[in-house]
Amino acid sequence: MRRLRPDERTKARMHATGVLTAWSSAGTAEGAVADLVGRIDPALYSQLLVFFAPCIDADALARGLAAAFPGLPVAGCSTAGEITPDGIAADTVVALALPRAGFRVVTDVIPDLRNLTVESGAAAARRLRTCLERRCGDRPEAAGHRFGLIFIDGMSYKEEMCVSAVAMALDGIPLVGGSAGDGLSFGSTAQLHGGQAWRDAAVLVLVETEYPVEVFRNDNFSPTDRKLVVTRCDPELRIVHELNAEPAAQEYAAAVGASTRDLTPMRFASHPVVVRIGGNYYCRSIQRVNADGSLSFFCAIDDGVVLTVARPRDLIRSAEAELDRIDRALGGLDLVIGFDCVLRRLDATRRRIRPRVEELYRRHNVTGFFTYGEQYGGMHLNQTFTGVAIGRSRPQ
């Protein structure tokens, strides 16, 4: 097999806002760092956002980036697939370089999620917000030009508490993000910050920019009349043992017209379950079937929760309508930092519409990663596409 030269395995795209997207298919931390060095001039940038495949050694990547770009902060995480300007990818490292001109960025890490409390999560967010205000000033006119990003360990089972605490403390700064992934292994994820790789952590990024921004969420499902009540579960581990007082996998399979042996991530992607909160439906996606016939979920679950089996709507049409709306609202869309559920990727593959998803994301300059869960405001979601859209025109 022919070995790719560095200039063949790495690409870059400059956006009108001065943001540079660079991505490498080297397949190793050392190779990816070498590729990015050839594309990114650290003197021009104030922050790197880095999303990387689980085959990449996280510790080596953190050390390599710190050595290659001294003084240039890095924040990011491992993924369940990457989104590049070329389309959907695997085994890559994707970097978004935010320029010094037009962007002011502060970051921090929230460690030890296992012992996180609402108070400690909120305190970390307040400290970072104060840091941003000291740097930029607390100006009312900046409200439409600020946003927060959060990358949370997708195997921590702490996303709900973490994101609700952080969103509350940010006091109006819109927050979006994604739960770090591990391909489809569901083993261990990694977060990058401060020159090292973290586990059981969340990385928080606050940005003020001169460009208009909008955070968004988009999904593509509609509820049916089929109901599943959680009658026995382990909330801490997000495991449901019984639905409607029957073995969970058996009851779910019956509700979607399948056998338990057919319950795969593809099946879960095609037949999500949703909960109703405040008049709206939100997905509570199933992660896997366990050996004892129980079901592990991506989101918080509890006894008495009423789950509704949902049917998918047209993913392309739904996402295209939302991105077109944002393009009009911002007076021209420059790029989207996007977080898309891994189950949506699997569903697109099963329905053979993945090339159309890639074309849509390329057209709207979406860069980001596939997640184990998505964050929007103070909520942790599943089977959703969230992100922040950045307009290309500065205010006069």
Rank of each mutant, 00 (worst) to 15 (best):
H193A: 15
H193R: 14
H193N: 14
G194Y: 11
G194M: 13
G194C: 13
Q196W: 14
Q196D: 15
Q196L: 15
Q196P: 13
A197F: 03
A197P: 01
A197E: 07
A197I: 03
A197S: 11
W198G: 07
W198I: 08
W198R: 10
W198K: 09
R199K: 14
R199D: 10
D200N: 14
D200T: 07
A202N: 06
A202G: 06
A202S: 09
V203F: 04
L204C: 04
V205R: 04
V205N: 05
V205D: 04
V205W: 03
V205F: 05
V205L: 07
L206A: 08
L206H: 06
V207K: 11
E208L: 04
E208S: 03
E208N: 03
E210C: 08
E210T: 10
E210I: 08
Y211D: 01
Y211R: 01
P212S: 12
P212L: 09
V213R: 06
V215H: 00
V215W: 00
F216V: 12
F216G: 11
F216R: 09
R217A: 02
N218G: 12
N218Y: 06
D219Y: 02
D219A: 05
D219K: 02
N220I: 00
N220R: 02
N220S: 11
N220D: 09
F221D: 09
F221L: 09
S222L: 11
S222R: 12
S222P: 01
P223S: 15
P223K: 13
P223H: 13
T224V: 11
D225T: 15
D225I: 15
D225L: 15
D225N: 15
D225V: 15
R226Y: 05
R226L: 11
R226V: 13
K227W: 00
K227M: 05
K227C: 02
L228Y: 05
L228I: 04
L228M: 07
L228T: 03
V229G: 06
V229F: 05
V229Q: 09
V229R: 12
V230E: 08
V230F: 05
V230G: 08
V230Q: 07
V230P: 06
T231D: 15
T231M: 14
T231C: 15
T231Q: 14
R232I: 06
R232K: 14
R232P: 07
R232Y: 10
C233K: 12
C233P: 14
C233W: 12
C233G: 15
C233I: 14
D234R: 01
D234N: 06
D234H: 02
D234P: 00
P235E: 12
P235L: 10
P235N: 12
P235F: 08
P235G: 10
P235D: 12
P235Q: 11
E236R: 07
L237N: 15
L237E: 15
L237Y: 13
R238P: 02
R238S: 04
R238Y: 05
R238G: 02
I239V: 14
I239K: 07
V240E: 02
V240M: 05
V240T: 05
H241K: 04
H241M: 03
H241P: 00
H241S: 06
E242Y: 00
E242V: 00
E242W: 00
E242T: 03
E242D: 07
L243I: 10
L243E: 06
L243P: 10
L243S: 09
